[in-house]
């Protein structure tokens, strides 16, 4: 029983992080139809920025805010420089370019900071362990969950109540009509990238806060996993992305925890089998409506 509960705690932690990344994917996808392979690497950018800022003795809270802003700026710049000229050039072009951006970000951080792992030392408060019955849970666990919940609420508010949110939903529902209505598509795209990258930045920071060490490649695999989560839940849907993230995290954790080691080492294979299965049975994901672009 203890084992079971411990696994649930772990799954919630992992699911929250996946959710933050997956939601970012979904937002960018619903506006641009772009799967940004470099999305995961934005996490890495945020963590390195935070690490540099903390080494400059900037207070933690301020450093986090600055790191998120730096990441947003970088995401918006890459959109402007690399993606915008290609918007009408077809899907493959965008996939290839986003892969190139991903490699570029990784290689630059490798050139600047080196390949080796670094440690992010968040204030002691976050790493404190709390004893609840038989379990020790770090404060960071609660922070991760809280960040995810707050982000989703803020995001829902932006989408429902603000002008830019309205424009985003309009483009998502009917891109052509949105153009006719005179919606400023460029501004919406910038907003989508900004929001998506901010979420990725928060995911990166909380993730590294929990797991401490980070390196230039940290974001890529997480990005792929989060993409799978977004597809499972339904690309383009925010609730879907969150749901997919938790489904994936629970499956992964319980798969590794409850199966004998000889099978559990095929965890990666299993994740992709789920993806293929979902695409076969429900191509639009668990909560997806018919994908806008086809």
């Amino acid at each position: 029983m203890n084992f079971f509960i411990a696994e649930i705690i772990n799954a919630i932690k992992l699911g929250s992080i996946y959710a933050l990344i997956a939601i970012g994917y979904s937002i960018v996808y619903s506006i641009l139809g772009l799967i940004n392979f470099a999305h995961g690497d934005l996490m890495m950018v945020a963590v390195y920025s935070l690490w540099v800022l903390m080494n400059l003795k900037i207070p933690f809270a301020l450093a986090v805010i600055l790191a998120v802003i730096i990441t947003m700026l970088l995401a918006i710049i890459t959109e402007r420089v690399a993606y915008r000229p290609l918007l009408n050039n077809g899907e493959e072009t965008l996939i290839i370019t986003s892969l190139a951006v991903s490699i570029l970000l990784q290689s630059i951080s490798q050139a600047v900071f080196g390949i080796d792992n670094k440690a992010l030392k968040v204030p002691v408060f976050f790493t404190k362990r709390i004893q609840i019955a038989d379990f020790t849970v770090s404060v960071m666990n609660f922070v991760i969950l809280a960040v995810t919940i707050v982000s989703v609420i803020v995001l829902a508010f932006i989408l429902k109540k603000t002008r830019i949110g309205l424009a985003m939903r309009a483009i998502k529902d009917n891109s052509l009509a949105a153009d006719f209505m005179g919606i400023n598509r460029k501004a919406v795209i910038v907003a989508a990238f900004g929001i998506g990258s901010a979420l990725a930045a928060l995911a990166g920071i909380t993730y590294t806060g929990e797991y401490v060490s980070f390196d230039p490649q940290m974001g890529f695999m997480l990005g792929i996993k989060a993409f799978i989560a977004a597809v499972i839940g339904g690309l383009g849907s925010i609730t879907g992305a969150a749901l997919g993230a938790f489904v994936l995290a629970f499956l992964e954790i319980f798969f590794a925890g409850y199966l004998p080691d000889s099978i559990a080492s095929y965890q990666t294979v299993f994740v992709f089998l789920i993806l293929i299965l979902v695409l076969l049975v429900r191509p639009d994901g668990l909560l997806g409506k018919n994908a806008k672009r086809s």
Partner: peptide, 17 residues
Amino acid sequence: NGITNIVMSVLFILVMI
């Protein structure tokens, strides 16, 4: 370090554009 990848990926983006 890793200059090859930096040059290649920039070249890559330029080719795409």
